[in-house]
């Protein structure tokens, strides 16, 4: 099978720190891949490089067979990669449903100066998207007032509204209480499966990785040090020591 995303020999330094030090990896269609690794190992930097927020000093990123290495975030988004952030990135002046409608409009054509954003079609679709993540109750609340867990979800809802073929999730359940983590991830995963969306998620909770990931990429010091099925990776002594700090 050909990879949907393939990354070759990616390098970037921040003041001498090698945040990416020869990253090589491939993501295949319809996979759900977990990214694990200690803090500062370059996981978020990798997402920034893949989406054009920063440019690598060396190496290439290819999406669906086309090089996207030097494109800007908006160009990469238009090609079908969406992202949800570690720190939720919301339009704080707008209500939750407006946030999602903006994403829908962005996908269908933002250059409409005279039809209202709140048109029937967009409203319906935005409600559907919010419903998928059980956010319908909060639809009309200003995003600035939402609690952190809901802000994370709102961020994911915006990314889903873009109808991506590849979704990058940066710690999707980090602001959510332990009891809610599994039901929430269940919802996200069922949306991904239903939409045949390939996804990659950064995660610290090994139970989540074990339960949801098809494959795991282990990060350390700016490179992928191991990859494989969760079962074998999470039982590897070397990985456990480096990532989780137990020996």
């Amino acid at each position: 099978m050909t990879a949907i995303l393939s990354v070759r020999d990616l390098h970037i330094n921040f003041g001498g720190v090698k945040a990416a030090d020869g990253v090589d990896l491939e993501i295949f269609p319809h996979e759900l891949v977990a990214v694990i690794g200690p803090n500062g190992s370059g996981k978020t930097t990798f997402l920034n490089l893949c989406t054009g927020y920063i440019s690598p000093s060396q190496g290439s990123v290819t999406f669906e067979g086309q090089a996207i290495t030097d494109l800007r975030p908006r160009q990469i988004t238009r090609r079908g990669i969406a992202r949800a952030f570690q720190i939720p990135q919301l339009f704080t002046g707008h209500s939750l449903i407006d946030n999602v409608m903006l994403a829908i409009a962005a996908q269908r054509g933002i250059w409409q100066p005279f039809r209202p954003l709140a048109q029937r079609e967009y409203l319906d679709e935005a409600r559907r998207t919010l419903g998928l993540l059980s956010l319908d109750e909060a639809a009309d609340l200003p995003t600035a007032t939402l609690p952190e867990g809901m802000r994370k979800l709102a961020d994911i809802a915006i990314a889903l509204a873009l109808k991506p073929r590849l979704l990058l999730l940066d710690e999707p359940t980090s602001g959510v209480s332990t009891a809610e983590k599994f039901p929430l991830m269940d919802k996200i995963v069922s949306v991904l499966r239903a939409g045949k969306i390939t996804a990659l998620f950064v995660e610290h909770d090994m139970d989540m990785v074990e339960r949801y990931a098809d494959r795991v990429l282990v990060w350390d010091a700016g490179r992928v040090i191991a990859t494989g099925a969760p079962g074998e990776i999470l039982r590897s002594a070397d990985v456990l020591e480096r990532v989780i700090g137990v020996s």
Binding site: T77, Q89, F91, G93, H94, L102, A106, I110, I158
Partner: peptide, 16 residues
């Protein structure tokens, strides 16, 4: 509305 979105979160707008 995208104009107000520039004000509140330009990075997110680019990521749309």
């Amino acid at each position: 509305e995208a104009l107000s979105a520039v004000h509140s979160n330009e990075v997110r707008l680019e990521y749309l």
